[in-house]
Write a protein that binds this DNA or RNA. Structure first.
Lengths: 230, 230
DNA sequence: GTCTATACACCGATAGAC
DNA sequence: GTCTATCGGTGTATAGAC
């Protein structure tokens, strides 16, 4: 009962295969080289992060053991500690990487062109946000659900990155208000409201669904545009 | 290290007192009657649910032990099993109660008066949603974060309640489109987008903050109204 | 209805061989 | 860099006394 949610049904609902990580029976050798045990790998580090990200997203940080992560990678639990000092740091590294990727991708998008209209800048932000989040469902899920499992100094670093990203949108909205394009009662609330609306797409969108990503982008963009309109 | 997040700092950040549930030293007798051990109480059941709700919201279902819940109530762990068959059912009962309260409160609000304008109906829904959610931060947090810890039949029941609530908003939006009050590209997406935006208030609002609940209601309502406007 | 005690399994993390 | 073995502790849940 202690692995309450490691059931095939739940995994199927979330579109995940069942790797059977209790028994080390179906551990997969990603490199394709024949080996009966161990990895001795070129790239165990990345594989550990990938396995942890997938398992944390499926079952939650607290419900996943280091032994489960090791089994999915195809090594023994002790080997994980060659790559991370502890489980908590493994979580933090995943979250920090995700937030840095988000911020860097956003700044790369906005970098070249300057002085565009606020409406166009908002459209670019909205479409970027949806695209980035739909591309990384596991990382997004962890970033929003596992904040309380970070120790205080780690939490503060993630929060700072989150606030920096939020500021990107706030600047756009503020410029739009100054230019007379937007009417916004409270800038901070509006910023969080728009981000919450857009991020919500990750809770229901599936590639197998009725709408394409482009269509979803359009629908959300129209709603965002109107929500801050004059 | 296994109780990684049971630290005073984190609790203070979430506005929770530190009950020190490791040592049974400060277990509180809520009834006020002097007793050195045990509860033998009229109302251990409700106290267990209250303690579980608080602890699950703070640390997450998987990170909270039955011993911690018992300590907060002031009984030994074995006594909990007079009130719940297992931990999983305790979680499910909390979530079902919350969703039923939500649906019942919504239907009580809309019950009496009929045939109002879609715009007014939407305003009532938006304000109700914000008020109800801000009044129950712990229950809301659990309802959104712990879905993956439910077994399949339990999950399906909660999902049905969530869909029924969603339908309440969908009906309003649909009526508004028919009446020519709203312009909506996709009814399902718009329904989820509005709910996501409104629910987002729970992630940042604090009573100690700059805005009153009434002001927050106003700001969100204006954004929702515009987001589906013609 | 609560207690004490316990069954049995798993946890994170480390030590030392290879 | 991975293995095997292990430490000390915790987990859920149950049994039986009172």
């Amino acid at each position: 009962m202690s692995f309450g949610t490691c059931d095939p049904v739940r995994n199927a609902r979330q579109g995940k295969p069942n790797f059977g990580f209790f028994l080390n029976i179906c551990s997969v050798n990603v490199t394709g080289m024949a080996r009966t045990q161990g990895s001795h790998s070129s790239s165990t580090g990345p594989k550990i992060r990938a396995a942890a990200q997938s398992l944390f997203a499926q079952h939650g940080y607290a419900a996943v053991s280091m032994r489960q992560i090791a089994a999915q990678v195809g090594v023994q639990a002790g080997a994980l500690y060659n790559y991370t000092p502890d489980k908590q740091t493994l979580l933090f590294d995943l979250m920090r990487q995700h937030m840095e990727d988000l911020l860097n991708a956003r700044r790369a998008q906005v970098g070249p062109n300057e002085a565009e209209s606020a409406v166009h800048a908002l459209e670019e932000f909205a479409r970027f946000h949806i695209r980035f989040h739909l591309d990384r469902p596991d990382a997004v899920f962890i970033a929003y659900m596992e904040l309380r499992n970070l120790t205080e100094p780690h939490f503060e670093q993630i929060e700072a990155l989150r606030r920096a990203y939020e500021q990107e949108l706030k600047d756009i909205l503020n410029a739009g208000v100054d230019a007379g394009d937007f009417v916004i009662a409270d800038l901070g609330v509006a910023t969080r409201a728009v981000i919450a609306m857009l991020t919500g797409v990750t809770t229901w969108y599936r590639d197998s669904g009725a709408l394409s990503r482009a269509e979803v982008e359009d629908v959300y963009w129209h709603m965002v545009r109107k929500s801050v309109a004059r």
